[in-house]
Computed example of a mutant assay.
Amino acid sequence: MNRLRQALDPYLLLLIATVALASILPARGDGARIADAIADAGIVLLFFLHGAKLSREAIWSGAKAWKLHLATLGTTFAVFPLVGLAIARFGLAPQDMQAGLLFLTLLPSTVQSSIAFTAIARGNVAAAVVSASFSNLLGIFLTPLLVVLLMQRSDSGSLISLSSIEGIVLQLLLPFIVGHLLRPWIGGFVTRHKAMLGRVDRGSILLLVYTAFSAAVVEGLWSKISGAELMTLAGLCIAILTIILLFTLLLGRMLGLSREDAIVLQFCGSKKSLATGVPIAGVLFPAAAIGPILLPLMIFHQIQLMACVFLSRRYGAQAE
């Protein structure tokens, strides 16, 4: 029970509370338009800060452990999507959840939690920093591209509008590049106020979740999804994570990675970023479609945390 309490992410509880608020008091009319405008500004701020946080040294050092980083990126952006496509192809997910599950598999890895779990497991923390940072950097470019290429051809239908391309450039890529170019001048400020800016990040995501689920609730989200479908969705998330964890374990052995690097591959390769997924969904998809698309990601986020708490402690105990 104590481990379960520690595995539960307090931020996820805030996300659940935000979804509940949107379900009871969804934003409508002028309120919804104002909230959407603020949420759009939050997306720009999020990716500006992502660019400012990423050091150029981390980017260049990534070339050193190329075998590990290629394995991690290949798992994140190739193996994961293949699993998502298989689920969509064979109709394993509820119809309203297929797009969300496929979107989940196209996202980059997390940064903070991947590094934290690697440290607990006594893995190669420096390599984890580089792998997770690379994944997030490439995800800004690759995830929208994969969404356009794969989701347009899946059973989820045509969700991407032409205006999404403009949104990707103006709300994701441009702020990220500007933030990174300004890092020599604002990098110190970002580092000193990391905790405060982290709260800004999370507050922006909460607002994005509220606006997304408000639009979905107005469109009748909860009347379209049953409890049995939610249980099926949770089971599929567990199955996806189990497949990837076993794959990364076997891949690390096949590549002859050291114990420390194999831990990096497993934790960085098996995670999907809620912090990156929410704003990308806000740019790519119509407002009414975002709620159902984010639901699988929110469920997978908590499942991956609970599984990684268990694994990291087990690996750490073995190392000691």
Rank of each mutant, 00 (worst) to 15 (best):
C268W: 06
C268A: 15
G269V: 14
G269K: 10
G269R: 10
S270C: 15
S270I: 11
S270Q: 11
K271E: 12
K271V: 10
K271T: 13
K272F: 14
K272A: 14
K272H: 15
K272W: 14
K272Y: 15
S273G: 11
S273N: 11
S273M: 12
L274R: 10
L274S: 11
A275V: 13
A275P: 10
A275D: 13
T276Q: 12
T276S: 14
T276Y: 05
T276A: 12
G277S: 12
V278Y: 02
V278I: 14
V278R: 03
V278Q: 05
I280S: 10
I280A: 10
I280N: 10
I280F: 07
A281Q: 08
A281T: 11
V283P: 01
V283W: 00
V283C: 04
V283E: 04
L284A: 04
L284Y: 00
L284T: 01
L284E: 05
L284C: 04
L284I: 01
F285G: 02
F285W: 01
P286A: 13
P286E: 09
P286D: 10
A287H: 08
A287V: 04
A287L: 14
A288N: 07
A288C: 02
A288S: 14
A288I: 07
A289I: 00
I290F: 00
I290E: 05
G291L: 03
G291E: 05
G291R: 06
G291K: 01
G291T: 06
G291N: 03
P292I: 08
P292A: 07
I293R: 00
I293H: 02
I293Y: 01
L294T: 03
L294H: 02
L294W: 02
L294S: 02
L295H: 05
L295I: 03
P296G: 09
P296Y: 07
P296Q: 07
L297Q: 10
M298Q: 06
M298T: 08
M298R: 01
I299G: 03
I299D: 05
I299H: 03
I299W: 04
I299L: 13
